[in-house]
Write a protein that binds this DNA or RNA. Structure first.
Length: 815
RNA sequence: GCGGAUGUGGCGGAAUGGCAGACGCAGCAGACUCAAAAUCUGCCGGUGGUGACAUCGUGCGGGUUCAAGUCCCGCCAUCCGCACCA
């Protein structure tokens, strides 16, 4: 038969056209839905590299796999387009962010289409579209009305380079998550979202989610729930009291001093005439130090206030100190210190020569010459009055209620999670829809007047003063109060980039609805997301915020579920060694333009084809692991495709009869590929294709080709991975419909996979000596006998044990 | 400091406690070719041996087991997360 060479350009062009003319993923209203979502990208000017492809290929393979199981797959794409890069570009060039964003979207969309994923572009959303951010603002108004959005003046994280406030989650090692500048503190009036009101649900509901343990752990730690007690200490000689928070009320008898954060409201008044100067100096110094300085401290610092507190349990007089190792905004900003049982208190006590009293006996006795704190809540209480003899772990749990009953404290729960600083002093974001009225206070923009459009400006520069650039537009700022009609001013801060991305996944399924965020009918039918695929970098940012928003929208009745993403998959990064070894070293790093280690998919698609690149993206390594890119490897998958192409062309139309051997291989292939795919082991799916292809080629040589059903099965298995080639070969086999139409993922049965004769290893004392062929259903006795025969003269000495693992090994243990 | 992950040929990687190195890249040899490319065939962890074979080998040191890359204990290295949250 005439040779038909594989030409990827022709094949891919043809099938892209066919799919456009007749879409393959259609909603007939009868199929069950499956929602497979990618984390939507920021449309940057530098375009896509092969690292971006990886996640999109994984999600597309999974989507097409689900299509072949009879699902209508919701697989949308959109743009997270507010944010600093577009704004910075505008500052530099004067081009309005709206223009540059539209250009970037067009360019990236063109590049994404090269992947040939089954995205439904009718569902596309863009966070900067007023019809979209109308609902971002609507959610804010609803939160305001529910008391979850509030204004507060407080020292917040401030990035001096981006000239904006930041959320806690956006500060990494004391630096700005975006630009890595050192973050300072700035006192600003801010809009806050009360995410802490959802702390318990955000924590407890993690159990419901099929997410990587790593991400769940990170969220758990970030929320940081702890149980303990607040205890009131009277200040000696006054009628004032200081409340401390502790998770170890069992050690109350061991409290030998107390430390307040320098920012504590009582810090100054505790000073005496002798200590006043030192105390005020210390408070001043602490106020000037950045987080980074504080973190880098090797040694503890502190100052004695001159005042004493009274331990409410035993009346002991304990000195009150100030130190910046106590955080002002956690707990009560004050702690009781038990140096014997806390590392930090121990270090402080040693440095300032404060007494150390042990109250828990480790292994039944006091530790002599203590060199470090004994921090475990395990052991018998000592030096603790009526608590002596109790078990520390039991007391730890019971003490909060005991203290509450004794009347000098209460049981409490604390969280590391803080409320979300939601104001940004920047231009390119959603305006916060609030009007400040001198009489009525903060009034939300009426819902029927949303969206509140972002006005056009001449200058985008952030002012750096804590005012947004919007504050300079008088005609926009000055308005009237929707409540009383008197002159009022608009809020000029904008929302953070996370605002739109916290709920966008709800909008895809009803993106043209002008009446509702999403209709309840469509939400019930198509949501939530079944599979969410993206990088791990959003573990506590986007993923935590989205869960918060979803819970809120659930509570106000917009949707019926309260977790957005049932299953989460984090793909690894694609890395490459930088070209400039002298500047960046020889270690492979995440692709970035500045490092000069970006590989563009464009030339690879041109030279090898979309199908080859798709498969190679998966073949580079386990999908959840980072992988180092090497262009040369793509030859391997391209060779596989060509060899399979040739095999099908050689066998097509020949009516090769099914043989026992071929059927066996076919069932094994379907089994292996299915199992590996279900386990998300996509790299071994590709190697499986190669391995079985080699076997079929060998077989075809022997028997003059491969039967129709085997070829059809393999093409169907291949279809999610290399859809163009699969379609073409499906047609070659005589089908006039798509491989995704009237077709389903093939089945296998275990019985058909079995061999009559199998190879087993024969071991002597656990070491393999030879391999023998035996009947698959051989008995232990016969297998052992065959094993002994194979070992023959090697088998000297007496036999201690005989082991037969069916289908695997015979092991003879001899002396 | 605390927590988590990872460590296997020249390289990417594969192995429900059961023949370590599947599959691929690179390399070597051969076939085809005037030649090259492409394609096809074979070899491809170390050491010893012409050879069948022997022996060592999954970061290091112990242990459990008939049998350990895999399980347990103790280290080392790299990466990631958190970092005075009382």
């Amino acid at each position: 038969m005439a040779e038909v060479r594989y030409n990827h350009k022709e094949v891919e062009k043809k099938w892209r056209g066919n799919w456009q003319a007749k879409p393959i993923n259609v909603n007939d209203g009868k199929k069950p839905k499956y929602y497979c979502l990618d984390m939507f990208p920021y449309p940057s000017g530098s375009g896509l590299h092969v690292g971006h492809w990886r996640g999109y290929v994984i999600s597309d393979v999974w989507s097409r796999y689900k299509m072949l199981h009879g699902y209508y797959v919701i697989h949308p794409m959109g743009w997270d387009a507010f944010g600093l890069p577009a704004e910075n570009y505008a500052i530099k060039t004067g081009v309005h962010p709206k223009i540059s964003t539209a250009d970037n979207v067009a360019n990236i969309k063109r590049q994404i289409k090269e992947i040939s994923a089954v995205y439904d572009w009718d569902m596309e959303v863009n966070t900067t579209d007023p019809e979209f951010y109308k609902w971002t603002q609507w959610i804010f108004v609803k939160m305001f009305k529910a008391g979850l959005a509030y204004e507060k003046e407080m020292p917040i994280n401030w990035c001096p380079s981006c000239k904006t406030g930041l959320a806690n989650e956006e500060v990494v090692n004391g630096c700005c998550e975006r630009c890595h500048s050192e973050v300072t503190k700035k006192n600003l009036k801010q809009w806050m979202l009360k995410i802490t009101a959802y702390a318990d649900r955000l924590l407890d509901d993690l159990d419901k989610l099929d997410w990587p343990e790593k991400v769940k752990k990170m969220q758990t730690d970030w929320i940081g729930r702890s149980y303990g007690a607040e205890v009131d200490f009277k200040v000696e000689g006054t009628d004032k009291k200081i409340t401390v928070y502790t998770t170890r009320p069992d050690t109350l008898y061991g409290a030998t001093f107390m430390v307040l954060a320098p920012e504590h409201e009582m810090a100054k008044e505790l000073a005496t005439d002798e200590t006043r100067k030192d105390v005020e100096d210390y408070i001043y110094r602490a106020s000037t130090r950045s987080n980074i300085d504080r973190m880098q401290d090797k040694e503890k610092t502190g100052v004695f206030t001159g005042s004493y507190a009274i331990n409410p349990l035993n009346g002991a007089k304990v000195p009150i100190w100030l130190s910046d190792y106590v955080l002002a905004d956690y707990g009560t900003g004050a702690i009781m210190c038990v140096p014997a049982h806390d590392d930090r208190d121990f270090e402080f006590a040693k440095k300032f020569n404060l007494p150390i009293i042990q109250v828990i006996a480790k292994d039944g006795k006091e530790i002599e010459n203590m060199t470090e704190a004994y921090t475990e809540a395990s052991g018998t209480m000592i030096n603790s009055g009526e608590w002596n003899g109790m078990e520390s772990s039991v007391l730890k749990k019971e003490a909060p209620e005991m203290i509450e009953k004794m009347g000098f404290g209460k049981k409490t729960t604390n969280y590391k999670l803080r409320d979300w600083v939601f104001s940004r002093q920047r231009y390119w974001g959603e305006p916060i829809p609030i009007i400040h009225c001198p009489d009525c206070g903060c009034v939300p923009v009426p819902e029927d007047q949303l969206p509140l459009l972002l006005p056009e400006v001449e200058k985008y520069e952030p002012t750096g003063t804590g005012e947004s650039p919007l504050a300079a537009i008088d005609e926009w700022v000055n308005t009237t109060c929707p409540c009383c009609g008197k002159p009022a001013k608009r809020e000029t801060n904008t929302m953070p980039q996370w605002a739109g991305s916290s709920w966008y996944f709800l909008r895809y399924v009803d993106n043209k609805n002008s009446e509702e965020l999403v209709s309840r009918e469509k939400a019930d039918k198509y949501l939530p997301v079944d599979m969410y695929i993206g990088g791990v970098e959003h573990a506590v940012l986007h993923l935590l915020y989205s869960r918060f928003y979803t819970k809120f929208l659930h509570d106000i009745g917009v949707i019926d579920f309260d977790e957005p993403f049932k299953k989460l998959f984090n793909q690894g990064m694609i890395c490459k060694k930088p070209d400039d070894v002298e500047k960046y070293g020889t270690k492979a790093m995440k692709m970035s333009k500045s490092m000069g280690n970006v590989v563009s998919p464009d030339t690879l698609v041109n030279d090898y084809g979309c199908d080859s690149l798709r498969m190679y993206e998966l073949f580079v390594g386990p999908p959840e692991t980072d992988a180092e890119w090497d262009d040369r490897g793509i030859d391997g998958v391209r060779r596989f495709i060509t060899r399979f192409w040739n095999l099908v062309h050689e066998s097509a139309g020949k009516n090769v009869p099914e043989t026992e051997e071929c059927v066996k291989l076919r069932h094994r292939m379907v089994h292996d590929i299915t199992e590996r795919l279900e386990n998300f082991s996509l790299n071994t799916v590709i190697s499986g294709f190669m391995e079985y292809n080699n076997k079929f080629i060998e077989l075809a040589k022997k028997q003059g080709g491969i039967d129709q059903v085997t070829m059809e099965n393999m093409i169907t298995l291949l279809a999610p991975f290399a859809p163009h080639v699969a379609e073409e070969l499906w047609e070659v086999l005589g089908h006039d419909t798509s491989v995704f139409e009237n077709n389903k993922w093939p089945d296998y049965d275990e019985a058909s996979m079995q061999d009559n004769e199998i190879e087993i290893a024969v071991q002597l004392n656990g070491k393999t000596k030879s391999v023998i062929k035996v009947a698959a259903d051989i008995s232990k006795e016969d297998a052992v006998a065959a094993g002994k025969e194979a070992l023959a003269d090697k088998l000297t000495g007496s036999i201690i044990k005989e082991i037969y693992v069916p289908g695997k090994i015979v092991n003879i243990v001899a002396k």
